[in-house]
């Protein structure tokens, strides 16, 4: 399988995609509306963003399904649409897939529900919600990206839910923040080391991290990660921190700085690179140039 070959090829750096949500916002996504709904309501705009990343040089791009697990859709009172959204999300990405040399990644985002004492979620509830989504996406995708997860227990629930219905490779990306004195932790208190140990135990194919941190801070995190595991690592940082001006969300970090930081992460041993909030096809195109020039 192509993805496994890429992982085994020591010289290959895999280029993932950039942001979906912030790209759709720039195309007048209604405030508060979940981007995933556009798979049904405005598939052309979703296809445009997906295609823009393949065009920019992404080896693989993920489906517009970040919030389309059943628990998350339920919070928006549209869980009845979970089949339709996920089916159309596959149709949309397949319609613009440029070649067999490009892969489709099934995107699985957080449920938005926390376990006690913070909220009322349970492992079974999470697992069932992810599994329903995974069943629909499974036939149409090449691999999984579970991302932006801040609770290791939720990550485990997602991995187990997926593994029961699919044998395709999994990238498991946690999101960390930097504490004042103790390094990187998830907001639920999982350290990088705890996460790596658990994810190795769960036998994921790639250990990843995305969102929350800008590219400069993510370099520090990657330094920790590479020392903790031999499993390939994926990094999708934000394009710095957002700033709102005149109703528009702006990411001020120069693209060159971002790409330079990604270059440092590759030097540290990161296998898969891409971007999260605020990144654009321009970021991806410049990372493509960087990778190809190495």
């Amino acid at each position: 399988m192509l993805f496994t070959n890429w992982l085994e090829d020591k010289s290959k750096i895999i280029l993932f995609d950039g942001a979906m949500g912030t790209q759709l916002m720039n195309r007048d996504l209604e405030p508060g509306k979940i981007p995933d709904l556009l798979n049904i309501e405005n598939p052309e705009v979703v296809k445009k963003v997906l295609a823009s990343y393949y065009d920019a040089g992404s080896d693989m791009v993920q489906t517009c399904t970040f919030s389309s697990n059943v628990v998350s859709l339920n919070r928006h009172n549209i869980s009845n649409l979970y089949q339709k959204i996920n089916v159309e999300a596959i149709n949309n990405i397949k319609a613009i897939l440029p070649s067999e040399e490009n892969l489709i990644v099934g995107d699985i985002g957080p449920s938005g529900e926390f376990r006690p004492p913070v909220g009322n979620a349970s492992g079974d509830m999470w697992k069932a919600g992810f599994q329903k989504q995974a069943k629909i996406l499974a036939p149409g995708i090449d691999l999984w990206h579970i991302e932006t997860i801040s609770d290791l227990q939720e990550m485990s629930a997602a991995i187990q839910g997926i593994k029961e219905v699919s044998e395709k490779p999994i990238i498991a990306s946690m999101t960390y923040r930097k504490t004042k004195t103790r390094g990187f932790f998830t907001i639920m208190g999982d350290s990088v080391e705890t996460c790596v140990t658990k994810l190795e135990e769960e036998k994921v194919d790639v250990i990843g991290t995305n969102c929350t941190l800008g590219s400069d801070q993510m370099i520090e995190l990657i330094k920790e990660l590479v020392n903790l595991t031999d499993i390939p690592i994926s990094a999708k940082p934000n394009a710095g921190q957002p700033r709102l001006s005149g109703g528009n969300t702006l990411y001020d970090q120069p693209v060159e700085d971002y790409v330079n930081d990604i270059g440092q992460m590759i030097d540290l041993g990161v296998k898969i690179v891409g971007g999260c909030c605020g990144t654009t096809p321009t970021h991806i195109r410049k990372i493509r140039t960087l990778i190809d020039s190495r």
Binding site: V118, K180, M188, G189
Partner: peptide, 16 residues
């Protein structure tokens, strides 16, 4: 919490 010793679960438990 501020020092990074406590996280969300501890903060919520303490307040509850």
């Amino acid at each position: 919490w501020d020092e990074g010793e406590f996280f969300l679960p501890e903060l919520m438990s303490g307040a509850q």
